[in-house]
Write a protein that binds this DNA or RNA. Structure first.
Length: 289
DNA sequence: GCGACAG
DNA sequence: ATCTTGTCGC
């Protein structure tokens, strides 16, 4: 028998419970952070996802297998050929009174650059938006949507933070740990941590480290993630803001940034997240389920 | 009290 | 997140 490469298991017992009090929510996040793995521990080859050119080449001819020795820290057994990457994002529904009373989670699964499945779920909102407690507001809808996903996800890409979080337990980390699926947080703005360099007008493909500061429950200087410039304008006047990418679960900071960069198409957001974003908007407009 | 904060 | 007019630039 071969020894397992990782010991983590799904943790439904750590699912975000919106009925908890604030202190209990924070305590749960400490458990999430303890169970989280912020290093590469997945079964697929990230290379074709990281390198846009290799993606199409992999579909054609199979090169000599001997030349495919891994250089990363990922699990080297049972490699998943065509990893299924899942983008997740939420939108909100308003009732007749005009209040946001429901969350709609949209999930888009992609394989080899193609959408293979889309599912969504709507749940009642039970708690307001509080910076640092986002997973308790949106987690229920996300888990419900994932419940109806038929394909087996190899990687989750969330619209929000992972380890870049006060207690190192952002929404990407929380859901990743509960499902024990490798996950990455992709945020459009920085929640906490300190940038280690200037992010103004970075060129496409570059990244700037984000380390823990006194607002984060981690040793000062701990690498939390990266500000990643996936796209940038050619000329002057205007510039695109970077993405704030961090490990959710079972993915290290470097790989998380590589994947966010490699999965970005024409737009700055990685394609799975961008499509989940538009699907979230599309789904709430039509038959509400 | 002040500052600061994903979606 | 969500609501929206106007405006810049290719």
């Amino acid at each position: 028998m071969t020894a397992p490469r990782h010991t983590s298991q799904p943790r439904p017992d750590l699912a975000p419970d919106p009925s908890l009090g604030r202190a209990e929510m924070e305590a749960l996040q400490h458990d999430i952070a303890d169970a989280a793995v912020f290093d590469d521990e997945f079964r697929f080859d990230p290379e074709p996802l990281t390198n846009p050119l290799a993606a199409s080449a992999a579909t054609t001819t199979t090169g000599d297998a001997a030349a495919n020795d891994e250089t990363n820290n990922s699990l080297d057994d049972n490699h998943t050929p065509n990893p299924t990457v899942v983008g997740i994002d939420q939108s909100f529904l308003t009732n007749e009174a005009g209040d946001q009373d429901r969350a709609l989670s949209a999930v888009v699964a992609m394989r080899s650059g193609e959408v293979v499945e889309r599912v969504h779920a709507v749940t009642t909102l039970e708690t307001p938006y509080i910076p640092g407690l986002l997973s308790f507001r949106e987690g229920g809808a996300i888990l419900a949507a994932l419940e109806s996903l038929a394909v087996e996800p190899d990687l989750f890409l969330f619209d929000g933070s992972g380890r870049i979080h006060f207690r190192q337990a952002g929404i990407a980390t929380h859901i990743g740990v509960v499902r024990d699926v490798p996950s990455i947080g992709v945020a459009k703005s920085l929640l906490c941590g300190s940038l280690q360099g200037d992010t103004a007008n970075l060129s496409a493909g570059t990244r700037v480290a984000i380390e823990a500061d006194d607002s984060v429950d981690a040793p000062e200087g701990t690498l939390l993630g990266y500000a990643v410039q996936t796209r940038q304008y050619d000329s002057p006047n205007r510039y695109i803001n970077p993405l704030y990418v961090s490990p959710g679960h079972r993915v290290g900071p470097e790989t998380a940034a590589d994947l966010a960069l490699g999965l970005a198409g024409t737009y700055k957001l990685p394609e799975p997240v961008r499509l989940a974003d538009s699907y979230a908007t599309e789904a709430k407009g039509e038959g509400l389920d």
